[in-house]
Amino acid sequence: MTDDATRGPDPAAMLAVAEEQQARALRLLEPDGAVIYGAWGVAWLVGPGLMWLSRAHDVLPIGVAGAVFAALLLGAGAVTAVHVGRRTQGVQGVSQQTGALHGWSWFLGFATLTAIMAATARAGASDDLLALLWTALSCLVVGVLYMAAGALWRDLVQYSIGVWILVIGAAGALAGVPTNQLLMSLAGGGVFLGAAALSRLRRRA
């Protein structure tokens, strides 16, 4: 693949070379929405779905449903971290710092949420109230962070997901337990899986 500037290659061929190489680089450097949205979509669909089946239809013990949900969330977090780490391997600079700061806002958001829930439980909240708050506050944190990321990165898909998650949080809280969990499963899991499918279609296009 050695060539000389004085040979003067064909402009059309050179333009194709530039465009193909840029597309290839972006495909290999940018995290794939299908992987990340897919992992969170499965966690949101199955986890709250099992919680709802347990509470509404007594199909399985609530403890089992909760454990599966927690495992799925941890799994989705691991998939996201590993995938993003691989795609951005060897990239250094501003985007790395931005990504780390963004990651910390998720971590601290959920750490604070966990502390609030522990305090609410200690203050004597019932299981139903706790189940209501977990879902509503999780949707609040997720929705707001998605909207902020969508606004800053000018990503309308992320922004719209954020709005939708806030709607699920508000509607679920008003609907009460266990309908809130069914809503989180179908509307929440559904929107992430839809975003995953959209990413796949866009990559092919």
């Binding site: 060539d3 290659p9 190489q21 680089a25 391997q89 250094q92 501003v94 985007s95």
Partner: peptide, 25 residues
């Protein structure tokens, strides 16, 4: 205007301003 250097330039242009790429990557 030489294929190899065009491909290198195109790749580095695909990276955000303010970011660097390691040689092996």
């Amino acid at each position: 205007h030489a294929e190899s250097r065009l491909r290198i330039t195109a790749t580095l242009a695909a990276v955000d301003r303010g970011d660097r790429l390691s040689f092996p990557r």
